[in-house]
Simulated scan of single mutants.
Amino acid sequence: MSGPRVLTFANQKGGVGKTTTVACLGAALAEAGRRVLLVDLDPQACLTFSVGLDPDAIEVSLYEVMLGLVDPRAVVVGTEEGPDLLPASIDLAGCEARLLPVQDREYRLRQALTRIAEDGRSYDDILIDCPPTLGMLTINGLTAADALIIPMQCETLAYRGVGQLLDTVTIDVVGITNPNLRILGVLPTLYDGRTAHSREVLADISQRYGVDVLEPAIPRTIRFAEAPAAGRTLLATDSASKGAKAYRKLAKSLLGPEFANF
């Protein structure tokens, strides 16, 4: 495989564990010896905060990169757990309006990642955390990706967002900006195997959407919510927990032969 594998994590429904997944999976891949770059495309900058940076103290962020104001190679920063980061700031909230008249607006993130690779920064995996919308930032994340993973909370109301996202992927992305995008599958999150409802939702995902269900399902635990306050992931704050073990198992599966080309 030439070049890094770019995985985008998207779901326009908020609160599904998307940012937690990017942070924890990135840490797990780094533990496995992979060179990882995290990309925070969300104006809320939760990923940036979760890995120990203060979004309000960042002088330049992905906002300036997307508008072509700075070289993306100058914006990449390191994190304590190993992955590098393209950080976000609240300024990203104004990015979509600024990009609206730009001809190549859907390709700005792809161009930035290509520029970073030209600097000799050899990453194995690039993980992109999209905002909970289907706007231009998410389209950029999908256009830049080799593959899409959809974190989905194991609750009935989460179904609606997945269907809308798949429509956008098929029509606007695969049909126009990134015909090679592969949907790796839905990642069940906030899963409580003790409840019949969670088990029923999990069993219905593949049949309803015709996509694979990635394993393992990520368990519901308050530990995930506590970790960002320390600026670390659960793999650092509670390494032996079920949640940390689940993300390590997910990382191992993504390194398997069936995903070797993505």
Results as ranks from 00 to 15, higher is better:
Leu7Ala: 08
Thr8Arg: 03
Phe9Ala: 06
Phe9Leu: 14
Ala10Gln: 04
Asn11Leu: 15
Gln12Lys: 09
Gln12Pro: 05
Lys13Gly: 00
Gly15Leu: 02
Gly15His: 00
Val16Lys: 04
Gly17Cys: 08
Lys18Met: 07
Val22Asn: 07
Ala23His: 03
Cys24Met: 06
Leu25Arg: 04
Leu29Tyr: 08
Ala32Gln: 08
Gly33Arg: 05
Arg34Met: 13
Val36Ile: 10
Leu37Thr: 06
Leu38Tyr: 01
Val39Arg: 01
Val39His: 02
Leu41His: 11
Asp42Ile: 00
Ala45Arg: 12
Ala45Val: 10
Ala45Ser: 11
Leu47Phe: 01
Leu53Val: 04
Asp54Ile: 05
Ala57Lys: 09
Ile58His: 07
Val60His: 10
Ser61Thr: 15
Leu62Thr: 12
Val65Glu: 04
Met66Ala: 14
Met66Gln: 11
Val70Ala: 10
Val70Lys: 13
Pro72Ala: 15
Val75His: 05
Val77Glu: 04
Thr79Met: 03
Glu80Tyr: 00
Pro87Ile: 12
Ser89Leu: 06
Ile90Met: 11
Leu92Val: 13
Leu92Gln: 11
Gly94His: 13
Glu96Gln: 11
Glu96Met: 07
Leu99Tyr: 03
Leu99Gly: 04
Pro101Lys: 11
Arg105His: 12
Arg105Pro: 03
Glu106His: 10
Tyr107Met: 13
Tyr107Leu: 13
Arg110Tyr: 09
Ile116Ala: 06
Asp124Ala: 05
Asp124Cys: 05
Asp124Asn: 07
Asp124Trp: 03
Asp125Ile: 00
Ile128Asp: 05
Asp129Glu: 05
Asp129Gly: 04
Asp129Trp: 00
Asp129Lys: 03
Asp129Met: 01
Cys130Pro: 02
Pro131Gly: 00
Thr133Ile: 08
Leu134Asp: 09
Gly135Asp: 10
Thr138Gln: 09
Gly141Ile: 13
Ala144Met: 02
Ala144Val: 01
Ala145His: 10
Asp146Cys: 07
Leu148Ile: 11
Ile150Val: 15
Ile150Ser: 12
Pro151Phe: 04
Cys154Asp: 12
Thr156His: 07
Leu157Glu: 02
Ala158Arg: 01
Gly161Val: 08
Val162Gly: 13
Gly163Val: 02
Asp167Cys: 11
Thr170Pro: 11
Val173Ala: 13
Val174Pro: 01
Gly175Val: 13
Gly175Phe: 15
Gly175Trp: 15
Ile176Tyr: 13
Ile176Ser: 14
Pro179Gln: 08
Leu184Pro: 14
Gly185Phe: 13
Val186Asn: 09
Thr189Lys: 09
Asp192Phe: 03
Gly193Ser: 02
Gly193Met: 02
Ala196Leu: 13
Ser198Arg: 12
Arg199Gly: 06
Glu200Val: 01
Glu200Phe: 02
Ala203Gly: 10
Asp204Asn: 12
Ser206Tyr: 11
Arg208Trp: 14
Arg208Leu: 14
Gly210Ser: 08
Leu214Phe: 14
Leu214Gly: 15
Ala217Phe: 08
Pro219Phe: 07
Pro219Asn: 06
Ile222Met: 03
Ile222Tyr: 00
Ala227Val: 10
Pro228Ala: 04
Ala229Asp: 05
Leu234Trp: 03
Leu235Gly: 08
Ala236Asn: 03
Gly243Leu: 00
Lys245Glu: 15
Tyr247Gln: 00
Arg248Lys: 15
Arg248Asp: 15
Arg248Leu: 14
Lys249Trp: 00
Lys249Gln: 09
Lys249Pro: 06
Leu250Gly: 05
Ser253Cys: 04
Ser253Ala: 12
Leu254Val: 09
Gly256Pro: 02
Phe259Ile: 00
Asn261Tyr: 10
Asn261Leu: 12
Phe262Glu: 05
